[in-house]
C-alpha cells in the first residue's frame, strides 16, 4: 500500500525544526500542520499577509477579515503579525522562510517543478507558488508518485509549463522520500513500508539511485 495523505504529511512534519517559519501550500501540505508539535514554536506563514496562522476559528470567532491563502477563515496565534502582500513576499523572496511545502503535477531530475498550468485546459494561475519555490530556503514537494492514468510524474524533463527551475530539494510522495541530486536524477532515501525500492525505481521516469542508508519508513 502506498502512503495515505496523512502519512505523507506526517513524514514531511519531521523536516520541520524548532523555531522554523514555514509556508504550507494547499492540499496535502496543509495537513502537515496537524503533525507539528506545539512545543516546537513553529510559525506558519500565509502569503496573503499573516505570520503565525492558527487553527480554524470557532463558529463565534469567524472573521471575514482573517483568512489564509486558501481563502479559508483562520485564527492568529499569540505572537502573530499581519502585513501587506509586498512585505509577505519580501519575506519569501528574501530567504526568510525556512521551508515551504507544495504540491506538484510534475517534478524533474533537475529539480524543476510544474504545478500551475495545463495549456488549453486549466487556467487558474500560479498565485504565490513561483515566488515560494524561488525564495524559500528549502522546498519540499508533497505529491502522488504516479498519475491516475499510470503515467510518470517524476520525470527527466517537465513537459508542462514550469513553476520554477532547479528549486526542489526533496519529494515526499505516497511511495517514499527522494532527494534531487542535480544533474544526476533522484536519490531514494526512504520507501513506503509495503513497497520495494525496485518498485519505486520502476514508477519513476528518470534515473533513481538508492542511497546507501536508504530504509523503509516506519509510522508509530
Amino acid at each position: 500500500m502506498p502512503l495515505t495523505r496523512d502519512q505523507i504529511a506526517k513524514r514531511i512534519a519531521k523536516e520541520v525544526q524548532p523555531g522554523f517559519c514555514v509556508n504550507l501550500g494547499i492540499g496535502i501540505p496543509t495537513l502537515v500542520a496537524n503533525f507539528i508539535p506545539e512545543t516546537m514554536n513553529v510559525m506558519l506563514q500565509s502569503e496573503n499577509g499573516l505570520l503565525g496562522m492558527g487553527q480554524f476559528p470557532l463558529e463565534t470567532e469567524v472573521d471575514a477579515d482573517l483568512i489564509n491563502a486558501g481563502k479559508q477563515t483562520v485564527t492568529a496565534v499569540k505572537g502573530a503579525s499581519f502585513f501587506s502582500s509586498a512585505d509577505s513576499f519580501a519575506m519569501i523572496r528574501g530567504g526568510h522562510i525556512d521551508l515551504t511545502v507544495l504540491g506538484a503535477m510534475q517534478v524533474d531530475q533537475d529539480g524543476s517543478i510544474a504545478n500551475w498550468m495545463i495549456p488549453g485546459k486549466m487556467v487558474k494561475g500560479m498565485g504565490g507558488a513561483m515566488d515560494l519555490v524561488a525564495g524559500a530556503r528549502r522546498v519540499i514537494v508533497a505529491m502522488e508518485h504516479v498519475a491516475k492514468d499510470g503515467s510518470h510524474k517524476l520525470i527527466k524533463k517537465c513537459t508542462l509549463p514550469l513553476t520554477g527551475q532547479n528549486c526542489i530539494d526533496r519529494i515526499v510522495s505516497d511511495f517514499g522520500v527522494m532527494d534531487v541530486v542535480k544533474g544526476r536524477g533522484f536519490r531514494l532515501i526512504e520507501w513506503a513500508p509495503d513497497l520495494t525500492p525496485e518498485a519505486i525505481v520502476k514508477a519513476t521516469g528518470a534515473p533513481v539511485e538508492i542511497a546507501p542508508d536508504a530504509k523503509p519508513m516506519s509510522f508509530s
Partner: peptide, 12 residues
C-alpha cells in the same frame, strides 16, 4: 457584505 469564500470552523 464581506463575503467569505471558505467558511472553515472547528467545533471546540
Amino acid at each position: 457584505e464581506k463575503r467569505i469564500e471558505q467558511r472553515t470552523t472547528r467545533l471546540k
